[in-house]
Amino acid sequence: MTRTLDPANKTAPASVGLVWRVIPPGLYGGRASTLVERSALVNRRGWFVLVGGAFEPILFLWSLGLGFGQFVASVAGPDGRPVSYAAFVAPALLAASAMNGAVYDATFNVFFKFKYAKLYDAMLATPMGPLDIAMGEIAWALLRGGLYSAGFLGVMLAMGLIASPWALLALPAALLVAFAFAAVGMAATTFMRSWQDFDLVQLAVLPMFLFSTTFFPLSVYPGWLQTVVTWTPLYHAIELMRGLTLGVVGWGMLGHVAYFAVLAAVGTVVAARRLGSLLLD
C-alpha cells in the first residue's frame, strides 16, 4: 500500500467554541459537507424524483385557481383586507410543503439509513461524528427543500399570486422553516423503534397541514381553539409566508423567525446527542 494521505488531513477540525459546551467532544469531525456530497451522488441518477417533487405543489396551485377559488371569491387576508382565495392559500402551501419535505427527509429517510442500511455505522468508522451526520442530513433536506420552494415561488409569480417584493424573503424563510422541521423530525426519529411509530409522525403532520389556517382563516374557529392553533409550528410558518408574499410585514414577524430558530437549534442538538448515544453506546 502506498501512503498517499496528507497528514494535514488527519488533524481534527478547529475548535468551534460554544458548540463544544453543548456537544461533547468526539461528536463532531467537521465533515458534514461530505454527507451532502453523498446525497447528491445518490440523487444524481434520481433527478426525476427531484423534479417530480415540484410537480405536486403546481397541481395544488392549479386546482386552487380552477376549482376552489370558484367557490370563494375572497378571504380576509393577514391585515383584514380581502385577498383572492388562491393568494391566501398559496403561501400556506409553500409553508406546508417546506414542512412536509423536511419531515419526510428527516424521518423516513433517516430511519431507513439508520436502522436498515446501517449507513451511519459505516460513517462513524471515519473521522465523522454524529453531529456531522445530523448536520449533513439536515443540510441536504434544506438544499432539496430550497429547490422546491424556489420553484414554487416561481409558479406563484407566474400565476400572479405574489403581491410584494418582500416575497423574495419567503425563500430564506422557507429554508428556516424546513431547517426547524428537519431538526425536530430527526430528533424525533431517534426515539422511533419501528415503522409503526411513524404513524405518530403522520398524526402530527396531517392535522397540522389541514387545520393550521392552510385552507381557511383562523376566525373559523371558536376562541379557545384559535389559541390552540396558534401554538402549532405550521401556523407560525404560514403567518410568515402569507405576510411576505402579500406584503403585510411588521416587526412581529421576527417573533416567528425566533420561534423557528429556537426549534432548529434545539432539534439539532437533541438529534446529534441522541444519535451519539445510540450509535456510540
Partner: peptide
C-alpha cells in the same frame, strides 16, 4: 380529517 377540514372548514368560506 380531510372531510372536516375541507367540508366544514373550507366549506364555511364558500360564498357561491
Amino acid at each position: 380529517l380531510f372531510l372536516v377540514a375541507l367540508g366544514l372548514g373550507f366549506g364555511s368560506q364558500v360564498q357561491s
